[in-house]
Write a protein that binds this DNA or RNA. Sequence first.
DNA 1: TTGTACGCGTTATCAA
DNA 2: TTGATAACGCGTACAA
Lengths: 322, 322
Amino acid sequence: MTVSRAANRPESVSVETRGKIFDAMESLGYKPNALARSMRRRSTHQIGYLTADLTITPNAIMAQSAGQTFAEAGYRQIIAISNGQLELEHKFLEQFQSGIVDGMIPMISDESSQKTVDLLQNCGVPIVAIDRDLPFTVDAVLSDHRAPMIKAVKYLHDIGHRDIALLCSPQTMRPGRIRSAAFVEAAQQLGHTDPEARVFSMPQRPEEAFAATQFLLSRADRPTALIAAANQLTFGVLQAIQSLGMSIPCDVSVIGADDTIVSPLFRPALTMISRDLVEIGKAAAGLLIERLRQPETAVGRILMLGSDVVLRDSCSSPQKKK
Amino acid sequence: MTVSRAANRPESVSVETRGKIFDAMESLGYKPNALARSMRRRSTHQIGYLTADLTITPNAIMAQSAGQTFAEAGYRQIIAISNGQLELEHKFLEQFQSGIVDGMIPMISDESSQKTVDLLQNCGVPIVAIDRDLPFTVDAVLSDHRAPMIKAVKYLHDIGHRDIALLCSPQTMRPGRIRSAAFVEAAQQLGHTDPEARVFSMPQRPEEAFAATQFLLSRADRPTALIAAANQLTFGVLQAIQSLGMSIPCDVSVIGADDTIVSPLFRPALTMISRDLVEIGKAAAGLLIERLRQPETAVGRILMLGSDVVLRDSCSSPQKKK
DNA sequence: TTGTACGCGTTATCAA
DNA sequence: TTGATAACGCGTACAA
């Protein structure tokens, strides 16, 4: 009908007819069916966003920021939560392949899964990676995890620490890999003993960090400082230190990661590795929107965003052990 | 084609043909188009979830829990973030009306907006409200905010407080209304002076609570205890108290709301009004799924879930003022 | 057990 | 400027 024209290019319909059409749409409560429209246009204006866990505030910040950017550009965001489970992740990625999304931002939880990689590579829509290394050319927004980790280690070294432990997310994801490599590199350069043995990778859950910290701090040769290189690990470390009746920074210095509103509210206020999470989400969404508008752009654009260490009160010189 | 049959009711296709079809699907990488299927079936298996802000952890917990329940039942969740802006909210609700969702969970941010109410009432799909009162019959999952508020006020009264202030979310939403009413009721019954004058409603942002707390605690006749009846308000209260160089609970007692993993990590550990947010999300999704499966069920099912006060260390008897 | 025809609600194309 | 027709890819109904 002429209705379609009126809705999409009003200027191509006579004022008179247009008026009648709008009146009728109003009185009938007519809404164009988005499905039929998408089918015809071969575009749903939906974006798939896969993440492990939205209750991890930094993840929520990135997702929300991306979602806002998409909304402003006329796209809807579908958030799929994998809970870190590989099978769920595959299920969602397969769903995204059935034509319901125009693009994807997949924050996968295991870069080493061949099936995940295959699903992404053959998904048929543009994707933008956030902080993930994929074995094929993609657009990506990456955080510089190396510089702040080196800075953190140096800072602890400068105030006297020689025995620092790192708790970080799994080696199957970029942040864990880069952060642990940078940690080892920096500690070695500063002459610390066997830093590799002081790296502990674990899923990003407080319980994991709780157990690891209890174990580490119960030993006679316990480290004098802990770096918790993920948001939820930071909470687990704090829990464990409190459960042991130890205090920060007297008994142990702590540096956390992924600063949010609560970090400065802890006593002592937490020194954190911090990055602009809103900017990351926005940048990723921006890259994807650009590509959807100009599909010819060469794939492989990489945006590297900086991050830094915010000094507060959770680190001090190590005390002599009793 | 016979392909459709093979995909949907494999038993109605001969084993031989079925095999050929599956082989072909495999080798061609064929995926049924979800759009066409939805159009034909008149159901997208998508659910719209509207919320104000996912970076508020309690909101994220509810949304995630609902999303998981939906995923298990074969539904996809579309999360729309309104940022508390009425226009955005309307925009999203209108989008949801164009046939892209089979149902909705709209956590609207202003129950008094006639336009919002109209959009919900005429949206054409089942909805389930979470903690919102709507002026028409709907299925809803509600929290009991009255009992825990009364308990909190009594608790503070029992340890000696006679001047308690309440910071709560706006009166245009159920939690703010119920909590402030319960607060006034309890304080009056206990003989406190003019409790209405001690209720402060504000948008759920830390800055708002920060300003209000600074104002309240700078006065000579400052309250001896604060109840922050929303997650982000709690953080603002803590910021303000720290900025004033006061300490909890010596200078002022504090009760927060919507317990999350961080509450016990603060020093002192925070006494909180707490509810099972996972259960809320799950219950809401469950109600909606039930209705989608059995559309004939009478509308107006109400699930009232309890909540409680978790006592920790942020309250003590008020000190004599200097 | 398998194939054919049609319709879901749009929009693109072409003709009037 | 407007109307008619076909097509998007699937599922239903019916025929073969």
